[in-house]
Structure formats: C-alpha cells, structure tokens
Amino acid sequence: MAMLFSPVFFSAFISDLFMFFPKDFIETAEGLLFAVVNPGLEQGKALCFLRYVNDGGRWRKQATDEANAFLRKHHPDYLHYSPVLDAELHAVDVERIAKRHQPRQRLLHIMQSEHHDPIERDVLMLGELLKQQGMDLESVGITGSVLVGVQKDGSDIDLVCYGREVFHRCRAAVRALIEQKRLQDLADSDWQESYRRRDCSLSYEDYVRHEKRKFNKAMVNGRKFDLSLIEPEEAGGQECYQKLEPITLICRITDDMRAFDYPSVYRIEHEAISFIVCFTATYTGQAFNGELVEVSGMLERNARGAQHIVVGSSREARGEYIRVIDA
C-alpha cells in the first residue's frame, strides 16, 4: 500500500493535533474534566488540573484540595510532578483523553446557534457588541463552565483571546463600550464578590485600584465577563527551574509586553534577577513599564544560573503578590 503522508507531514500533523493550550479542557472516560494549565505536552501528558467530576450524571466542581484528595483516592495515576515547573499538578496521557473542549469552537457554536440559555444569550450579546467595535471573533473563544456546558444562571463569561494584538483590540473595544454605556463597569458589590473569589493577598482597596485600570473585565446585561490572553506563537519549550526560597523584593518594571500573557512575564531592573513570572490571573496586567512594584513570590534558578521570581508557585498563591507602590 502506498504511503499517503510523508513522515515529516505526519509528525507535524500529530504535533498540531496535540498542541494543547491553557484554557482548553480535556475529558477522560472516567468522567473527569481537567483544565489545561500549560501549553504542549510533557512526557506525552497534557499538564492540567481537575475541575469537575461526573457524579451520577451531574458535573460537580472541585476546589483545589478536594481535587487533589479525590485523585489520591480514586485516580492517583493522574497526579504528576512537573520537573519543568518544579510543581505538583495533574496530567493526562494523550491516549486517555476521550474528548477535547476547545474555546474557539465553543464560541463559534454559540454565535451560530438559534437556541440559547440565559448565559448563552449574554455571550451572544457580548459577541455582537464586540463585532460592532470591529472585533473578528475567529480568534476569540470561551472557557470555564460555558466551554464544557455546565454553566449555571449565575455563571460568569470567560473569554479567551488568541494573540496579543487580538487581546489588546478586545480590551480597547471593552473600554469604548463602557464609555458608550453599552457595557457596564463593575459595581461595588461586583468588585467585592470578585475580591472574595480571588482570595488574594492584597487589601480590597489595592485589589480594586489595580483591577480598574486593566479593562479586562466588565458587565454585560448584569453578568460579569473577563478577558484573558493566550499567545499561541510562544508555546514552545520551557527551561527547568528549581525552587530556592520565598522572596519579597521592591523593583522597577522595565518591560511589560507580556504582562497579560499566560503566564504573565515582567522584566525587572535588578542585578541578579531577570524577571517576574506570574501564574495566577489576579496579577495579570498588574504593572506597567516604569512602575515600582513590591513583589512577593518564590525565587527560582535554572541550570544556567538565571533567576526569576514566580508568583503563583502554588495554585492558591497564598502570600504571593505584585503591588504597584509608585506609578
């Protein structure tokens, strides 16, 4: 039989097929839904974290400690230590993935469908408003509970923008729509609820002060939505870093180009430490060029001796933060 595809083509096809991105969800035959947390694969596994368990036909959301305890008891083979991230998380072998949930496909389906529940109607409204501002939704997706169809009446909308330029155009569109009063800024009660969910190490006043200048969240028809950024072009290999010790440092931001990426990266002015890497959404877009910040996180070093500070070295990132102290 003649070979249909060259080995080079087939290798590229497989690589693209398994190019997972943060904000994707993957589902296993056991009825587990994991959120992907790192691009690509490590040792043939998608790095992820358990978010939902199918319990008698109903999807039950898992808190961090609950997810870890569940896997330790029922599926310890999904627990994983990542030498690249030097962190304990979850991982699923590609051959054990029963279904892949992709944000762009889900948003396209909602925008093209005729029948919607209340949250999908708000997604449709938001999508139409963004299109009226010149946004091309082909590079935008939806993640969270809506991606996997387990949304409730009170669920938020979590939009994902693929590409830095797309994300910043979307931020500008949200800002313009707020000024036009077609979208609404968060009210005090909404900010308080957002702060409660984040459970971060900043004061409420500091949290709101930083958030209000990001323009990556607003309200549509009384429902909160968030924007996040995935940069597919930068999903290549990563170096291994080893955790050294907790550190708190005051430094100045010198490069904020990747401030809204996942993970966020802030280059800093420091003789021994090159940058801050942030894995928690609370501190995405937290600081801009020239600003003096106080950062608390985990100091890490790679084999070449390069050092950086990680904020979000654990899922909860308790005691870790970025706070602007002089703009």
Rank of each mutant, 00 (worst) to 15 (best):
I253L: 07
G56E: 01
D65S: 08
A327C: 12
V220W: 02
A281T: 11
N68H: 04
L129H: 02
R223D: 09
Q62K: 07
F21V: 10
G236P: 04
I250Y: 10
K214H: 00
L41R: 00
D226L: 12
Y78I: 08
V293W: 01
L249M: 06
A187Q: 13
F10R: 14
P22Y: 00
Q286G: 13
E114Q: 15
L50R: 06
A35I: 11
F215A: 06
N221D: 15
G141H: 04
N289Q: 12
A69N: 08
V92Q: 04
P232A: 06
A259P: 11
C278Y: 01
T284L: 02
P76I: 10
F25T: 00
K23M: 10
L130V: 10
R171S: 05
D65Y: 05
A272Q: 14
S203N: 10
V123I: 08
C161E: 03
F9I: 06
P76H: 11
K212C: 11
C251F: 06
R213K: 01
N68M: 04
F49I: 08
R171V: 00
F225W: 07
R197P: 10
V148K: 02
D55E: 10
S203I: 08
Q102N: 05
C161D: 01
A69C: 07
K23Y: 10
A259R: 13
L126T: 02
D158I: 05
S139R: 05
M111H: 05
K214P: 00
H74R: 14
G149V: 06
A35V: 14
A12G: 14
F167P: 02
S314N: 08
E88I: 13
V324H: 05
H101S: 14
F260V: 05
G163Y: 11
P263H: 02
C251G: 07
R213Y: 04
Q112N: 12
F215E: 02
E300M: 12
I14E: 02
